[in-house]
Design a protein around this nucleic acid. Structure first.
Lengths: 204, 204, 204, 204
DNA sequence: AATGAATGAGGGTTCATTCAT
DNA sequence: GATGAATGAACCCTCATTCAT
């Protein structure tokens, strides 16, 4: 790869990163191409040369985001040094470094009116996401953390729900993230009724 | 109240309702004043005369939405004919008729850049929402459905999480809403591990 | 019609006239909405409010132009005080006052990529233009100016050819328009070979 | 001339040809430098290196077009094997092969705002075109096809008019090009009144 | 009081042209 | 010398908002 291509790739990455950060902070609609260009240190037109328009830029940003997240989760699921409980803890609290800073709020807005993205997400879910989570849930059932009668779909929905919830945490509750996280982890496994044979972890 | 004022109030209500429906379907950004005026059968300027601008219209719309929802929930919490489990079921599956049609997605976008609304929501949460939910949780603990050691904030977060999750369900899972709802209800009380002494409800 | 509507109509007419003049002088592509707005003494947005966009403005301008010209020609054809030769003279030299200032060059460019306009022109030709010219040619045959064996289509083409030619006259030849017009008129009736029994009109 | 220069000339010719084809098909305004570069298989910058800008490229394209057409006409006029009638027939029906595919519509648009091109065309007309046509018309008078009293300018205008008309024929009339051509040829020589001593050619 | 009409500011996009390899 | 990359200027269009009746 020569100097041209390397610089081109770096600029493309810059633009995508800038776009992702702004999109996730302010929403797709309120971010202007100009702002992205400014943050990525390029001219507006360069963005058009590389991506062809705002819609396609959004598409590529979402794609990049989704597949980068997929890789992280893949590594986690296949990690033999953790048990199911630890993996779930990481997943739902999303401690994987840079992902913490990126909210997916904007996806919901975007999916509504971009059929391409709808298809991208749908295809991603079917081909990549579901098999991965099935493997994880199998681990959970093997290790006895998951009741064997729950349907796969429900469990997936449940996990996703926790994950989604953790994205919009910080400012609402008065507890430290630490406390909230521990209590919710317990609820995740034993529900609102709690584990009758145990007191809560943070009350030990 | 004379006829003039009554007609004025009806128009104001029309505008707010139209705004709410459009905001919740398309997001605050994509709805234009013109569309609201058209749907409410008034002129654009009338909206300005009554509300003073888009921002203030949004503010009033959110306010109306929040307090209407509050009333519904108040009635539910104080209903002596239901037990805790039934009340929670209604709350998280959101079976209260017209609320079903209104999504609050747009709130998240709005809260970010409107300090007035931030304060409104914050004040509402402190003064109205929290006391109400505390009362409900007290009922839950009294009736034995809630582990007494869980902190109030965590429980609130948990309930809210379920509520949020149920809004965006339909198209993702292959299960019937019926099935999903039953399994999730069970998870709500007994967690991912399930109730060891029981099989799942729909397997009985 | 109240004051509102009158002013609205006047503004619409202003815009269309300004657009037509600019279009015909500089071509459709090179004229910006801003220039039209400036010439018509309105804001750009007013144009959008009335016409909805540049394409539709072009459409309406062409429509107006075509039908105004039609009226003029209709009056001419049905005028009983002139004979065929005089009518043709007026038609091809296009002495009808304001039409002199408007060139139709821009139509050719426009027709290529606007299917709506293609249809408009096509429909106009079939429904309005052809019947009118047929009536005129019938007069010509009746009065003995037109050889009875010529097909109608050829004659129409011939007349149109002369008309088109006169639009782009002024700057090319060194003759006065007067002279050119007289010689061409003679050619129109008797061809390049001239009328053998006569010398040319301007040599009498 | 060495290999380098030969390749350079071939590229220049490629660019000019590509430009001419695109200009005549879509008009000067709607053709972008990028499209020309693509069609000519060169980079945009090469065009700038060779021609210096779009305006100058247009200038060179027009120049090339005009002088190539001049050569063809010169050969025709000096051809001793045809008489005046045949030569005129070829000229106005424009049967010279490749010229058929190139429309000069775009010239009219261009001439308006490019003084250089105005001068080019003007100079070409004075120095090259007029003497050539004068020679042709002299032939016509000698052979008795042209009334000797017609002024030279009018005849030129008349020929040009026919030539222009034949460019935009095909789709408008319902006649076959054959028929139209024959009738118009007759009109060319004998006018709308026809030759009194003759019926039309295709009615013999 | 209510409305149709009008507008200033700003967004996405394109294009001729220059830069840097 | 030739090219991919980059850009400033300009255009069409939209929207919240004000004006005038």
């Amino acid at each position: 790869m020569n100097g041209f291509e390397r610089r081109k790739e770096r600029k493309q990455a810059n633009i995508l990163n800038a776009a992702l950060e702004l999109f996730s902070e302010y929403g797709v609609q309120k971010v202007t191409i100009q702002e992205i260009a400014q943050k990525a240190q390029v001219s507006q037109v360069t963005i058009y040369n590389y991506f062809g328009g705002k819609d396609q830029l959004i598409f590529e940003a979402v794609k990049k985001f989704i597949y980068e997240r997929l890789e992280k989760v893949q590594d986690l699921v296949q990690d033999p040094t953790m048990n199911f409980k630890e993996k779930i803890g990481l997943l739902i609290t999303n401690k994987t470094e840079d992902l913490l800073h990126i909210h997916m709020d904007f996806l919901q807005t975007v999916i509504a009116d971009q059929p391409d993205i709808q298809e991208l997400v749908s295809s991603f879910t079917q081909k990549d996401s579901i098999p991965l989570l099935m493997e994880l849930i199998r681990q959970g059932k093997d290790e006895g953390y998951v009741h064997p009668d729950f349907s796969f779909q429900t469990i997936m929905f449940y996990v996703e729900m926790y994950y989604q919830a953790f994205r919009s945490t910080s400012n609402l509750s008065g507890l430290t993230p630490q406390q909230l996280s521990e209590e919710l982890s317990h609820m995740f496994f034993y529900g609102l009724a709690g584990n009758k044979e145990d007191s809560l972890p943070n009350k030990k």
